[in-house]
C-alpha cells in the first residue's frame, strides 16, 4: 500500500500537481499510514528518486524542482507536529543570497529540500552581508552556510563567498562551519566554487540536499 502511495505521490510531483500530491498524502493518512511514514517513506524517497532521474540525465525541469521542494516542505510542516516524538534533526544551515543579489528562487528551492530532509534551515533572506552570514551561523550553531548567487559579480565579488571564507578563517571556525554555494554562475563554471572558497556546490536544489548533508556529517565527525 505504501508503495502505491509513493508512486501516486511521485507522479503528482512530476506533473507539478500540488493539489493531487496533497490529496495523496491526506488519503494515505486516512488509510492509517503514519505521519512518520509519509515523510520518511514517501516524501524523502520522492526527492531521492528525483536525484536519481537527474543523475541519469532524464531532464527534470526547474518547475518540477520548485514544486517538489514546495510540496515537500508543505507536507513536512503539516506532518511533523503530528509525529509521536519530535524528529531527529540532522543539522543546521543558514541560507541567503550574496550581497548585491536579489534573486531568491534558488534559495527557496534549496531550503525546501533541506527542510524535507530534516535539516533545520534559517533563511537570512536576500542581499546578505558576509559578516551576517557568519554571525548568524554562530548564533544558530549551524554547520553550514549556504550562499546563493545568480550573477557572476555577486558570486565572484569581494563581498560574497570569498569574504565569508576570510571571516571564518579570521575567527578560527573553519572546522566548525562549512560553506556551500550555488546558483547560475556555478552551473556555467563547475570549478568556480573552489576559486571563491566554497567547500561544495550543487547544480540544483535536490542535489543541494545531498551535498549539504555530506558537509554536515563532515563537521559533526
Amino acid at each position: 500500500m505504501l508503495e502505491q502511495v509513493m508512486t501516486q505521490y511521485n507522479e503528482a510531483i512530476m506533473d507539478t500537481d500540488r493539489d493531487r500530491a496533497l490529496q495523496v498524502v491526506h488519503d494515505a493518512l486516512a488509510l492509517e499510514i503514519t505521519p512518520e511514514e509519509v515523510v520518511f517513506e514517501v516524501v524523502v524517497p520522492a526527492i531521492e528518486l528525483m536525484m536519481k532521474s537527474i543523475s541519469e540525465n532524464q531532464g527534470v525541469s526547474l518547475a518540477q524542482h520548485f514544486m517538489a521542494a514546495q510540496i515537500a516542505s508543505e507536507v513536512v510542516d503539516d506532518m511533523v507536529p503530528r509525529f509521536r516524538k519530535a524528529p531527529q534533526i540532522i543539522g543546521r544551515v543558514v541560507i541567503g543570497t550574496s550581497q548585491g543579489d536579489f534573486h531568491g528562487l534558488g534559495k527557496r528551492i534549496v531550503a525546501g529540500c533541506l527542510k524535507a530532509m530534516m535539516i533545520e534551515v534559517t533563511d537570512l533572506g536576500l542581499n546578505v552581508a558576509p559578516e551576517r552570514f557568519v554571525d548568524e551561523a554562530l548564533a544558530h550553531d549551524a554547520q553550514v552556510i549556504a550562499i546563493s548567487s545568480m550573477m557572476i559579480h555577486t558570486a565572484r565579488g569581494e563581498n560574497g563567498c570569498r569574504r565569508v571564507r576570510q571571516i571564518l578563517k579570521e575567527r578560527g571556525v573553519e572546522d566548525r562551519i562549512k560553506i556551500a554555494v550555488g546558483g547560475a554562475p556555478y552551473r556555467f563554471d563547475p570549478e568556480l566554487y573552489r576559486s571563491v572558497g566554497g567547500d561544495a556546490w550543487a547544480e540544483n536544489g535536490i542535489t543541494a540536499g545531498r551535498v549539504i548533508t555530506c558537509l554536515i556529517r563532515e563537521v559533526r565527525k
Binding site: 500540488r18 526547474l62 518547475a63 520548485f66 514544486m67 514546495q70 534573486h103 531568491g104 528562487l105
Partner: peptide
C-alpha cells in the same frame, strides 16, 4: 514580482 513569486503564481 521576482522569479520566486512568479514561479509560484505560474505553477500554483
Amino acid at each position: 514580482m521576482g522569479m520566486e513569486k512568479w514561479m509560484q503564481m505560474l505553477m500554483m
